[in-house]
């Protein structure tokens, strides 16, 4: 089993090294770093938009990156069914780009939160969660100032009704006021997933737990 993956790097991205390391560690294949100014993507099974503060969070988090040179190629890849994973700032970029519905607003408590939360697998049938059990609760760190998921009531109803909420903050650990404790959502087709927490930082015993591995292993299994 091997998977060709790539991590998009924008000015202000800062989790690309962690992500590249995690992908190589878990998939066994070296991922590619993709520069934001490129206009074409290599042939990939998984494109990751990593965490950070692209363009200094100017205007709105993810807003400038979402209109970057590489984005039309990412939209095209998503249309072809390539798996796209957005973590933290990557989730914000996917929402701003219209690949996922809704928006990540300022945390309800107004503070940047950097801590560990509990995540519950709300749908274990997705390409990004299939190696977890339905309802499984796992440990994962978060580090963000704008993770407060918001969308209109109709879209929220659709997301819930169509099983597109993949992950929820569990056991009262919602760190940001996110609607329905939403931590991660899918697009309609199920090949684009965005989440605020950082599974790439929970993959080795050194991290305190390895709960994040299954997320990447899920994609690995899905593309095999």
């Amino acid at each position: 089993m091997s998977m060709k993956s790539g991590v998009v790097v924008f000015p202000g991205s800062n989790r690309e090294r962690d992500m590249l390391y995690a992908l190589e560690n878990i998939t066994g294949a070296k991922p590619q770093a993709i520069w934001h100014a490129d206009t074409e993507l290599p042939e990939l099974d998984l494109v990751v938009l990593c965490g950070g503060f692209s363009y200094g969070d100017y205007l709105r988090t993810g807003a400038i990156a979402a209109r970057g040179h590489i984005m039309p190629a990412i939209v095209k890849a998503a249309d072809k069914g390539v798996r796209i994973l957005g973590i933290c700032n990557g989730f914000q970029i996917l929402c701003e780009a219209g690949l996922l519905p809704g928006v990540l607003m300022r945390n309800a408590g107004l503070k940047f939160v950097c801590k560990e939360v509990k995540l519950e697998v709300a749908n274990a049938k997705t390409d990004f969660t299939r190696k977890y059990a339905q309802g499984q609760v796992w440990r994962c760190p978060v580090a963000h100032g704008d993770g407060n998921y918001f969308t209109d009531p109709e879209t929220l109803k659709r997301l819930e009704g169509e099983g597109r909420v993949g992950l929820r903050y569990a056991e009262g650990t919602n760190p940001n006021g996110s609607l329905n404790d939403i931590a991660g959502i899918l697009n309609e087709r199920g090949n684009v997933f965005g989440m605020m927490p950082h599974p790439e930082n929970m993959i080795e015993p050194m991290n305190g737990a390895t709960d994040g591995r299954a997320l990447f292993e899920s994609v690995l299994e899905a593309v095999a």
Binding site: L59, R60, R67, P101, G102, V103, M105, F150, T151, D152
Partner: peptide, 9 residues
């Protein structure tokens, strides 16, 4: 529409 405002919110 395209940049300055996010019309979701």
């Amino acid at each position: 529409k395209k940049l300055l405002a996010n019309t979701v919110i």
